[in-house]
Design a protein around this nucleic acid. Structure first.
Length: 583
RNA sequence: GCGCCCGUAGCUCAGCUGGAUAGAGUACUCGGCUACGAACCGAGCGGUCGGGAGUUCGAAUCUCUCCGGGCGCGCCA
């Protein structure tokens, strides 16, 4: 509907060479916006004020010349110049009726744009370390990422969702050793559990379920002898490392790997199931281990080396990221020969582009903000465009229970899981609440409030509107009446009440809201829109009966609320929230 | 010290590329079911948009500066 107005303005400008020149590098569509106040019409453009200076005119005169050049349209009732030079457009009822018909015609597809071939987007999100169950912070990443993916698809982009499984490195050894110690504990071999180990109860569950074939039995003495002290007397990292060495020595590399991989798979499966139950799925689970096995890190480093982008210093290999805007250079291969996490990161992003994706979006925790510049530097040094990587940071979630802030540390085992949260507040409320705030805003999640006031949650308000509409149609059937859809579509001129006009206006905004939310990676716009739309519907519901004796009016009103049902269902679908028929 | 994010009503937050009298929810005060679902609707109360300066027709929005809060600055992952 918006570009209907933009098109008219564009056509008018085409007949005014002087203004057209001044507007050459201006997107007309971007000057057209919905009015906040109905007395200003339906749409307004500030183009006259923006052209006044380059065209050396005064805004109101520029506006007058544009208005004079506008061609007549059945969609426009009235155009006026207001304030400092706004051009206000009052659309005709017919324009809104046509939009309603489009909604009914397109149904689930309403608000979705035609599929584009490019750019192919790789959307990476959650990517929590597979060392424990997801906690409430990950829930925000999951909801935000899934919704952004849905939005991007709705505006036509091909989207590939990926979870990067950080299943390599020392943290996997710590996981393996934590499980091993719990296994020994079951065999009554008590070893002081490391401060630096994973302490959660889930480790015991994994230990209890593990397949012990090929895992050597060991004596208590052989495990305990000669271990250094753990913190606080000793160093907790030294103690964990000693335990890892001991596990390797006693179980053999294959035996330890057996424990480690089973632990990893158990946790990874749990995460996948948890997310699937939350309505969040991925196209690929990309394993860091495979990155190493396929020599992708070496491949990436080789590209850098060939381009002269590596140098040696202090026995380590460095990447001059400061040449690309990073604050300092970064090590990629340590003095001990091990590759750094940064090396695998640039290799991973290199691999994404090599797989044929045009545009990469990473959704990361706020603590990763320093990381963007380095990875971009890596991509540029390899000859790619750093701007093809977009990083969206999600601020932290602070969980409150009983008015107290909860600590969320995986290693300490004191955390609240996404599973617990979902069980307490429900998937719909959780999905909705997580994206109702801007991602760069800290989120306070008070579990007690979410539980006790769940009926006051806006998500129910919106779902209720949907269920109410479904209920109206059930009532219609009970009264042995039928909705004549075609007649309703032909009788839309009967919808003259202010609540009907307001509802039609809100409905027609939907495609614009989807586009805005997608372009800004801002699901909260959709959330607020749906809340407003539901309010328009509830107001209408309270003001007028739909099932009236006058068949023509009844058909028209049912047509309008059918359109409302479609838009609410489509919007909730993008948020990953159900649209119930009854509540 | 440097960098990123944030500061809007008592509380939790919207405010789209700068636009017209700054908006919701919640709390509080009133009013509305013999009506298709009251998990609802309507009205009221409530704001120096953290402070200051600048840019311009016009600033919550952009720039600078100060104050306050969060996070990050490893040959950790």
């Amino acid at each position: 509907m918006k570009h209907l107005v933009a098109q008219l303005v564009n056509d008018a400008l085409a007949t005014l060479p002087k203004l057209a020149r001044a507007a050459a590098d201006l997107s007309i569509e971007s000057t057209v916006e919905r009015t906040r106040d109905a007395s200003h019409g339906d749409f307004a453009t500030n183009i006259a004020m923006r052209l006044a200076k380059p065209a050396r005119g005064n805004p109101r005169e520029v506006a007058a010349s544009i208005v004079a050049a506008l061609s007549d349209s059945a969609d426009i009732d009235r155009v006026e110049i207001a304030g400092p030079g706004f051009i206000n457009f009052h659309l005709s009822p017919a324009a809104f009726h046509a939009e309603l018909q489009t909604i009914l015609l397109r149904g689930e597809e309403y608000g979705r744009q035609a599929k584009k071939d490019r750019p192919k987007i790789l959307l990476e999100f959650v990517s929590a370390n597979p060392t424990g169950p997801l906690h409430v912070g990950h829930g925000r990443h999951a909801s935000f990422g899934a919704t952004v993916g849905n939005l991007l698809e709705a505006v036509g982009y091909p989207v590939h969702r990926e979870y990067y499984v950080n299943d390599a490195g020392r943290q996997m050894d710590i996981l393996g050793v934590s499980v091993w110690l719990r296994m020994l504990e079951r065999d009554s071999i008590a070893v002081a559990f490391p401060e630096g180990g994973y302490r959660g109860d889930y480790i015991r569950d994994i230990a209890a379920a593990i397949n012990t074939d090929g895992v050597a039995s060991v004596s208590a003495e052989s495990v305990r002898s000669g271990l250094p002290a753990d913190a606080p007397e000793g160093d907790k990292e030294d103690y964990v490392d000693a335990l890892i060495d001991r596990a390797r020595a006693l179980l053999g590399e294959a035996g330890f790997d057996h424990v480690r991989q089973q632990s990893l798979e158990s946790i990874r499966d749990d995460i996948e199931e948890d997310l699937a139950e939350f309505g969040v799925t991925f196209d690929t689970w990309f394993s860091e281990q495979n990155l190493t096995k396929a020599n992708r890190i070496d491949d990436a480093l080789e590209v850098l080396r060939k381009r002269g982008m590596l140098y040696e210093r202090d026995g380590a290999t460095w990447f001059p990221s400061s040449d690309f805007g990073d604050e300092k250079d970064r090590v990629v291969i340590r003095e001990n020969g091990n590759k750094t996490y940064f090396a695998s990161d640039i290799a991973y992003h290199f691999d994404k582009l090599e797989r044929g994706f045009d545009y990469l979006i990473d959704i990361l925790g706020a603590d990763h903000h320093g990381y963007t510049a380095r990875v971009r530097a890596g991509l540029e040094a390899m000859g790619y465009n750093g701007d093809d990587l977009e990083v969206e940071l999600v601020q932290f979630v602070t969980l409150y229970r009983g008015g107290k802030k909860m600590q969320m540390s995986t290693r300490s085992g004191e955390f609240d899981t996404l599973r617990q949260l979902r069980a307490e507040v429900g998937n719909d409320a959780a999905r909705f609440y997580y994206v109702s705030r801007s991602n760069d805003q800290h989120l306070d999640f008070d579990l007690d409030v979410a539980k006790s006031q769940s009926n006051d949650n806006p998500v129910y308000y919106i779902q209720y509107a949907h269920a109410r509409i479904a209920s109206v149609f059930r009532q219609l059937a009970e009264k042995s009446l039928e909705w004549d859809n075609a007649d309703g579509g032909a009788q839309l001129a009967l919808l003259v009440e202010p609540q009907e006009k307001a509802l039609m206006t809100s409905l027609s905004r939907y495609p614009e809201v989807i586009e805005l939310s997608a372009n800004n990676r801002a699901p909260q716009h959709l959330v607020h829109y749906l809340r407003d739309l539901a309010n328009d519907f509830h107001t209408y519901y309270n003001a007028h009966a739909f099932i009236v004796d006058d068949a023509a009016l009844r058909n028209a009103r049912l047509y309008l609320i059918s359109a409302t049902r479609i838009v609410i269902a489509n919007g909730l679908g993008i948020l990953g929230v159900s649209a119930p028929e009854t509540m």
